[in-house]
């Protein structure tokens, strides 16, 4: 079943006199349960692509279907609702609210969803437990290690049962051991919970955890290949 579908997607920025084609005719299909890595040098358009896929930005041209819905001309609030229900973000810089406990950070998406306080608490506790963070619910981000912070972020991404996680350089700020831990967690989520994962990275090692690698250059898809399994 198809989850994400783009047809001839373009995104044009006007910078003074010149126009930049951040996305230039990108057509891509991602099925439910896929684990996709997007690679490419900076300025290749991979971040713009993620922003459009993540409903943070709207394309200039072309079509984007998320779970069968056309995301072309949607209002700010409609896009916010889609981000809330359909998409879980994991960022390089974790992007947790400072001076706010892990639990409350995970509760955040449910806060904008009209969940009762009790349900919020229960689901956030469960999500943190699933990330192996029981006992750290009331820690603030600055009391947690980088790996732990990223696991809080993943718990937040999953807590509203989004079908897809968009991870933008999730291991960029982590040491090798934490990076591997996080990637193994992501692989496990993809395999066991059938969560679709789209990962942006420029590290070959990290991309190797995925099962399909799409390479961007100058706003276009230049290659789209499955990963050869090691075993």
């Amino acid at each position: 079943m198809v989850l994400i579908e783009t047809h001839h997607l373009t995104k044009i920025y006007e910078l003074g006199d010149s126009t930049v084609h951040a996305l230039n005719d990108v057509s891509l299909t991602v099925a439910h349960g896929e684990f996709l890595a997007i690679m490419g040098p900076s300025g290749s358009g991979k971040s713009t692509f993620m922003n459009v896929i993540g409903c943070l930005d709207v394309p200039t041209g072309g079509q984007y279907l998320l779970d069968g819905m056309d995301i072309g001309r949607r209002s700010r609030d409609e896009l916010a609702e889609l981000r809330n229900k359909k998409i879980g973000f994991v960022f390089q810089g974790f992007n947790l609210l400072p001076r706010t406990t892990a639990l409350e950070n995970v509760e955040l998406p449910m806060l904008y969803d009209g969940c009762s306080p009790r349900e919020r608490r229960e689901r956030a506790m469960d999500a943190l437990k699933a990330m192996g963070l029981q006992g750290r619910e009331h820690h603030h981000p600055n009391q947690l290690s980088g790996g732990q912070q990223q696991r809080v972020a993943i718990a937040r991404a999953l807590v509203n049962r989004a079908p897809v996680i968009l991870a933008d350089e999730p291991t960029g700020n982590l040491d090798t051991r934490s990076s591997v831990e996080i990637m193994e967690l992501v692989v496990k989520l993809n395999r066991e919970s059938r969560i679709t994962v789209i990962l942006v990275t420029h590290e070959q090692d990290i991309a190797a955890f995925s099962r399909r690698i799409v390479k961007f250059r100058d706003g276009r898809v230049v290659s789209d290949e499955p990963v050869k399994q090691a075993e």
Binding site: E81, F89, N95
Partner: peptide
């Protein structure tokens, strides 16, 4: 600004 961005990314609407 960053906090606002985070809240928006997890689904905060204009009036929220």
């Amino acid at each position: 600004t960053r906090e606002i961005g985070i809240r928006m990314s997890v689904g905060a609407k204009t009036w929220d």
